[in-house]
Amino acid sequence: MIPQLAFRDLTLGYDRHPAIHHLDGTVERGALLAVVGPNGAGKSTLFKGIVGLLRPLSGRVDLCGLDRREVAYLPQVADIDRSFPVSVYDLVAMGLWRSIGLFAGLGAQERHRIHHALEAVGLTGFERRPIGNLSGGQLQRVLFARLLLQDARVIVLDEPFNAIDAKTAADLFALVRRWHGEGRTILAALHDLEMVRTSFPEVLLLAREKVAWGPAEDVLTPANLQKARRMCEAFDEDASECRVAAE
């Protein structure tokens, strides 16, 4: 068991209020980890911390020697300007950034990979479409094609199947399985507990802090879920300073 990601007494938050409080734990290399919890549990916050968009208030995220750019991240709401005149092909091609960088052109091999990525997400024939003409599900397929090309060791998916029909979700989940089979480390925030139970070997239940972490059947118990719901209250504006950090 080789660790790929380690949270060490990690506290993440906004304006000094913690949204993830003193989280400890390790994600093994090749893990397929579902992160579940009610809205406001800190799932997105945790992911932002992992990819470096949010600086920890205390503690740290240890990438175990991995370059941060080896972590691919699909945000919950991609801040994509869909009115921008760019084609599906060009947007997907940018997944190759690490190999083509600033200037390199797309050679035959790259075009081949883009073609296959579009095929894998079922968007063959959409190459020239401007991204503004896509439906929500199609855009999510485009973003998965780009993730495919990024070829990252760690893939972080923030609620990737929300507002997407069952067919699209199933197609895209097949890709997640494929990545898992290739030994990549995958973290996904999900609300569909049924999907988590059947398809994810490992689950982290969050509610501002770790409620439970382990195999799905041990984590997703009625008692744990009840506990998670109760722990997710609003920030206390008058909260005093956390003592744990000082010790």
Binding site: R69, V71, P75, I80, L91, L102
Partner: peptide, 23 residues
């Protein structure tokens, strides 16, 4: 011509550009 790729990507998907590059 030199800064075209990051410049355009920064308009389309700034979050993604930040995740792959610091330019």
């Amino acid at each position: 011509a030199v800064i075209w790729r990051p410049l355009v990507l920064d308009c389309v998907d700034p979050g993604f550009l930040r995740s792959v590059s610091r330019v």
